[in-house]
Structures are given as C-alpha cells and as structure tokens.
C-alpha cells in the first residue's frame, strides 16, 4: 500500500502525540521528584549539600542507582535498624514515607540531576599521601581510582561527592557492625572486612583526606 499524504499526516500526528505524552509523563515524574524532595530538604538542605549538625550528608548529584539502592535499604530495614545507628534511624522513617510506586525512583532522579555541591572539608589531621596508599590497597578495586563507585560491584558507593565527616562516620559504622551487618546486605558483608583493614582512627582520617582530593 502506497503512503499517501493522509497516511503521512496520521503517522506524524501519532508520533507527535506519543512525544507529547512521553514528555508530559517525564515532566510529571520530575515534578513528583521535586515535590517529594521538599521532605528531604528539611535535613539535606534545598541544594542537597548536607547539614552535618543533623547528620545529613551531601547527596546532590549522586548517581540515581546509588540513591535508589540506599532508599530501598532504609525502607526494608537493611540500613537504619541498628540500635546505635542514630543517623540511620533518623533517615529510615523518611524513606518509609516514600510509599507510592515510583516515589523512590522519582526523588532519586531529582536528586541525581541536582548540581554537585561538595561541602568544604571539616575533618582535620588526615594525611592524604598515606591515605592514597591505603585507598589504593583497600578501596580502589570496588570504588574505582577516581572514587565514582561501581554499581556492578555490589553497589560500591560513589565517594567523590561525599562529605568527609560522613565518610568517616560510615567507615566507623562499618567497623562497629552498625552498618553492613544485617543478613542479606551483600555489599555490607563485602565492605566490613575491608574497613577492618584500616588500622585505627588515623588511618580512616588519612584515607578520607585522600578521597577528598579526588576531583568530582
């Protein structure tokens, strides 16, 4: 059947309609993400740059897969259900407020699209040169030489967008079993023996100091 002008016009109309509907759905999702983020902004800040006083890390520009994974872990209790995880317990009910299908994805996409706002370092006493040696020996295989993380490596976290105080606290949490010790937390199970290789608090500070030198 030869295409006449009417067929072409109809095809164009259908194509334009699909495009408009697709754009509208995407716009709705973006709007939903922005709307949901208003809840997060109370602690993480309008620009998602974090707020140390309430234990809320910088999250702007983190990869969507990582944000989704963490929100799901908070929701299902893999994170934020240890007696000593004070900040995690503060986060968990917030994640549980994302109740509708697609909420986690929408808010994660919104945060991932925000410009990275790396906060100024607040930890002191770290030796980045020594930290580089530790990072290369212990962390690089999963988190990568530039600290961007690796979804395929059991969701190894991106580190180069994080606040130094947050990294320090998480390493301590992994060492103490406050994080990563729940049954089924495969990434945590892999991470815990790694952080136990850091000899002491100074070693943690060193490696965090090095991570902070990794450019975004």
């Amino acid at each position: 059947m030869a295409l006449n002008r009417n067929h072409v016009a109809m095809f164009a109309l259908v194509a334009v309609s699909c495009f408009v509907v697709g754009c509208s759905a995407r716009a709705d999702e973006n709007e939903r993400g922005a709307d949901l983020y208003r809840l997060c902004a109370a602690c993480h800040g309008e620009s998602a740059a974090g707020y140390e006083a309430v234990g809320a890390p910088a999250i702007a520009g983190l990869p969507q897969w990582y944000l989704e994974a963490q929100l799901k872990q908070f929701r299902d209790g893999t994170r934020g259900t240890h007696f000593d995880d004070i900040m995690g317990m503060r986060m968990r009910p917030m994640a549980r407020m994302l109740m509708r299908d697609g909420d986690v994805e929408a808010v994660s996409a919104h945060v991932a699209a925000m410009p990275v706002a790396r906060p100024a370092p607040s930890l002191t006493g770290g030796d980045a040169d020594n930290g580089k040696a530790i990072y290369t020996a212990t962390c690089v295989a999963c988190h990568g030489a530039d600290g961007v993380g690796n979804q395929g490596m059991l969701g190894a976290a991106p580190l180069n967008h994080s606040s130094d105080w947050y990294l320090f606290r998480q390493v301590e949490n992994f060492r103490a079993g406050v994080r990563g010790a729940r049954a089924g937390d495969q990434g945590g199970a892999l991470m815990r023996p790694m952080v136990l290789q850091l000899a002491d608090e100074q070693a943690i500070k060193d490696v965090v100091a090095y991570i902070m030198t990794l450019a975004n």
Binding site: G80, F83, M89, R90, R92
Partner: peptide, 27 residues
C-alpha cells in the same frame, strides 16, 4: 526515643539489664 524511632533493650534470659545477653531491637 530518638528522632524518629523507638529502640529497646530487653534483659534477655537472665532478666537483668546491662549484661551480655541483653537484646537490642529497633521498632
């Protein structure tokens, strides 16, 4: 109580708080 969770320490089989068999739970 803390923002925004309840956590609990149960005394365990010895019925005494502050011992090794205390059971800590959240929620």
């Amino acid at each position: 109580g803390q923002q925004w969770a309840w956590s609990f320490v149960h005394p365990g089989a010895d019925h005494e708080l502050g011992t090794a068999d205390d059971i800590k739970t959240v929620d």
